[in-house]
Design a binder for these strands. Structure first.
Lengths: 206, 206
DNA sequence: TATTGTTCCGAACCATCGGTCAGTTTTTAT
DNA sequence: ATAAAAACTGACCGATGGTTCGGAACAATA
């Protein structure tokens, strides 16, 4: 009698994907559940068969998005032998995210911060999700640095402060990305980052 | 017959100050105009005698807040002779802003980004305000660096790339502040920044 | 085909809130 | 005193949009 249940997860991801595009285009607050439903090709009420609330959609969509970014990053830096090149690929991947048009990360980042900091925000009681993601990126850079040390390309003494160095590098990338999202002078962006990275690599190279 | 007009500006600032506290506490979206009016000790309708819209209140409040930060920063770094110390004071002032409890800058920063990036946001059509403020901070650092060069404390060759260096330093401070606002491990914050700044100063010191 | 649980739907509900306005109070000039 | 303009007020309006709900459509048994 009971008909077989649909693959709920798959449909959840479809809805989240449609929502992500809208969030990136107009922002979380300006995107209505009805628009998400339309974009996903389903009725408004159906959305609530898959998600308990609009916030849940946001959490799911952002989670998928960042997991995807992380996976791509890991994949692209995994099999590179030269640590310097590995670092450069990491950096250029971060830079590439900024230039994405679809989804444009600008508003997604702003909404993530918003939902993380505001009491009652979608990520407020789940800051651990955002923290974990940052930790993963941090671990990635740490791996690259330690790999360089073990291959005797980077100075051995950086091993002692490797997590500090990784955090600082990521903080810089974060900040400079935000700087150019605000200042909108993308022409100089490449040059600016290259200048920094040159100094960074020089400082840790044997 | 016509009674003398009240000092509109003064009352505007009062309202904006009351609003800023609420924005910092609950965020822009979660703060209603009525709450602002109550906090300022006036009626809701009166608010609209001084501001055309809620967005205007936000712009005014944020403007005052950042102008205040800038003024304090300038004042504290102005008369220091030693360029290294000047830089350190600058940094420690940035760090201090993070630790403020009233107003807690976390939500203000999130709201500023939000209102700058979202179409229709309060700062979307006035990004120049935000850009200008960043430019002022950048100029401050540039001044300190050039002062150091002229006093033969910093390497002369940094003069060539001085604005790049300033932008990078600010980007780092931005990023590391955001990092710690998210990660909430303030204990390590000082240590982390000090580690960075030591490397930074070493690199530019003659 | 009848039955039964699942999936889907969008009209309707409801709470919120920015902004308005008609009327009251206060201030100042004569 | 009094008149006129300014300052103030809070009830009200209109719009928005998240969530609910009663029922339609559908698929899988028997």
């Amino acid at each position: 009698m009971p008909p077989k249940r649909f693959h709920k997860t798959e449909k959840c991801n479809d809805i989240a994907a449609a929502a992500l595009a809208l969030f990136a285009e107009k922002g979380y607050a300006a995107t209505s559940v009805e628009q998400i439903a339309d974009a996903a090709g389903i009725g408004k009420g159906t959305v609530y068969e898959y998600f308990a609330s609009k916030e849940e959609i946001f959490v799911h969509a952002i989670n998928n998005w960042i997991l995807d970014l992380i996976n791509r990053m890991v994949e692209r830096t995994r099999n590179i032998e030269n640590p310097v090149q590995r670092l450069e690929i990491f950096i250029s991947n971060v830079k590439d995210v900024l230039k994405l048009q679809q989804p444009d990360p600008k508003r997604l980042f702003a909404d993530i911060d918003q939902q993380t900091f505001m009491p009652g925000g979608a990520f407020y009681k789940r800051r651990h999700i955002i923290k974990d993601m940052r930790a993963v990126f941090c671990g990635l850079v740490t791996d690259i640095l330690l790999d360089g040390v073990s291959k005797k390309v980077f100075k051995p003494e950086i091993a002692r402060d490797v997590s500090k160095i990784a955090v600082n590098l990521l903080a810089y990338m974060d900040g400079i990305c935000m700087h150019y999202l605000i200042m909108e002078e993308y022409q100089e962006f490449e040059e600016q980052v290259n200048f920094y990275i040159r100094g960074f690599v020089d400082a840790i190279l044997i």
